[in-house]
Amino acid sequence: MILLFLAIFLFLVGLYGVATKRNLIKIVIGLTIMEYATFLILALIGYRQGAAPPIVVEKMGGATFVDALPQALVLTAIVISLATTALLLSIALRIYHKYGTFDVGKIRRLKG
């Protein structure tokens, strides 16, 4: 339970970073922290105290396993997050080429 709360805290840390940081790269880092916290939450939901890894071999009858489904979900989510981060960083680099800065305060051509 403590681990779960720590993971939620990590999620909020990432959210804080996204909301307050002025540097584009730091915003991306904040988002990545949020995503990792989400993966941790997913993995912890499948966790069972003292259970075996979900690999079924013969003569194991009666053993409890951790839930394997969230682990599969985390794998999928990691792939998605890789694509998102790559796209986000490439957009940030293109912005740097156009504006010459990573500072959000100076990148303000859109308003209203």
Binding site: L24, L87, I91, A92, R94, I95, Y99, I107, R109, L110
Partner: peptide, 11 residues
């Protein structure tokens, strides 16, 4: 420039 800025914000 504007399109990249909007895309970053959106993403």
């Amino acid at each position: 420039a504007e399109e990249l800025e909007a895309a970053f914000k959106y993403q």
